[in-house]
Design a protein around this nucleic acid. Sequence first.
DNA 1: TAGGCCATCTGGTCCT
DNA 2: AGGACCAGATGGCCTA
Length: 326
Amino acid sequence: MIKPYVRQSEEEEVAGPQQWMDGDVSSPDGGTAVPPHRYRAGGGSQQAPEMGSEDAEEEEEDEEAQGDEGESKRRGPKKKRMTKARVERFRARRIKANARERSRMHGLNDALENLRSIMPCHSKTQKLSKIETLRLARNYICALSEALEAGLSTESRAFMETLCKGLSQPTTNLVAGCLQMAPAPGAGNRPEDRPRARAPHAPLGVVSYASPGLPSPPYGTFDSAHLLHLRAMKGGVYENPSPSDYNSGLGTPPYDGPPTPPLSISTNAVPKQEPSPHYPPPHHYSPSPVEQDMYQTGYDVHLEASYDTYHPPSLPPRQITSIYRD
DNA sequence: TAGGCCATCTGGTCCT
DNA sequence: AGGACCAGATGGCCTA
């Protein structure tokens, strides 16, 4: 049997469409669009190029070679033929979609990194996990709101307790360390809060998680600059939420999240909070008239969403109050 | 080795 | 048709 001539390059390039769509044959993308330093062989079976794909390709080629006679005998709805051109288009689309998805996730991670950088406890060596970053951010907002309303000190225990609600023990320790306080009772005491993993490349820490007290500092940095914003706000420049706002559910909600998985932690001292790698903002940036107006009226404009990685340096205080604006 | 975290690929869905 | 978004799957890296 003489095999119909097929260019070698075509055999390599064109996988059987069905197999490829089912994931049995790897996407040719395979990270080609990813810089070498970033590419990791994740993505599971899709990442194994050439594995067993040639047989499928041959079948596909044979099927196409047989032409219409075989196809006319089939029952059921006629499938749209996957011509080489279609396969190529499909593949190109998939590659583009993968690149977009990567880019989208990178943008998401950038935003998360920006969020980390404005957290009260910011450490470069001890990077908060994504989920812990979100939880701490939520707590931070709640804690600042409560402090604002009740006139509490941001160094008070209540502030820290709110800050630590639902956080893992390691993160709680970190926050406590930054605040130079003992961890709040009950905070981070879930059974699963054991030290298990730590941030990649971070040195081993000496935190005693079993201890109810404060492990030996330093843990990270608690940037009091964030709190200065809060104090400045107490001058009445910004609106305070009314108690009814809290009653209506806008205030600090009870912790309702699932148990937090353990957090990576190390205990190295870290210099003062570092600016976002994307800060200062590019010169070409200037708020739009709409955004400027929103600033003047106290609304927070989350520029990060619109301008990717830029977040204005002096806006955090307003983010608190803007929550309660009508 | 188990478990946590992460990056990536993928297919589905919705929208323009 | 194509882009955005999402969730599932997968494998790598790291620590205990």
